[in-house]
């Protein structure tokens, strides 16, 4: 099945997020209080490797394994990055997790995180419903 490869990348991603404690509510508290370099080190080095990879892919016009040109769609600016970004940041700090860690925490056996995920689904649905009325 063609999607299994993405599942495997997800397993690696989830294992790393968990073992480096980026899924931990405690680490998020520490990050937003600037009391440790740990989370900044993770995000910073992930960006450094990602940036170098994207640059190499573009420079050498590396193709995907299907032989396609690799396309990186532009993110469009909207007021959403400001308003939605602030709301997301508040939720991230309140619950102590962002979407990736939520899935990983549920897998690690923290059952009440299911409620946070269902709430996040409901929040996504609310945005979808109210999107035409929101400033963009």
């Amino acid at each position: 099945m063609k999607n299994i490869k993405y599942l495997l990348v997800g397993v690696l991603f989830g294992t790393v997020l968990t073992k480096t404690e980026a899924v931990s509510w405690f680490r998020i508290q520490e990050m937003f209080r600037f009391q440790s370099f740990h989370m900044y080190g993770i995000i910073g080095s992930a960006i450094a490797v990602g940036m170098l990879s994207v640059w190499l892919i573009k420079k050498f016009k590396i193709k995907s394994i299907n032989g396609e040109e690799i396309e990186i769609a532009d993110k469009q600016f909207s007021k959403g990055q400001i308003i939605g970004g602030t709301i997301f940041g508040m939720g991230w700090a309140l619950s102590g997790a962002c979407p990736g860690p939520l899935y990983a925490l549920l897998g690690a056996g923290y059952s009440t995180i299911l409620i946070v995920i269902i709430s996040a689904l409901f929040g996504t649905w609310l945005y979808s419903y109210f999107k035409p009325k929101l400033p963009h």
Partner: peptide, 15 residues
């Protein structure tokens, strides 16, 4: 619940 709603609403709004 509210934290989760803000995570879902805010992330989609922010793209």
């Amino acid at each position: 619940v509210l934290g989760g709603i803000m995570i879902g609403f805010g992330s989609r709004y922010a793209g």
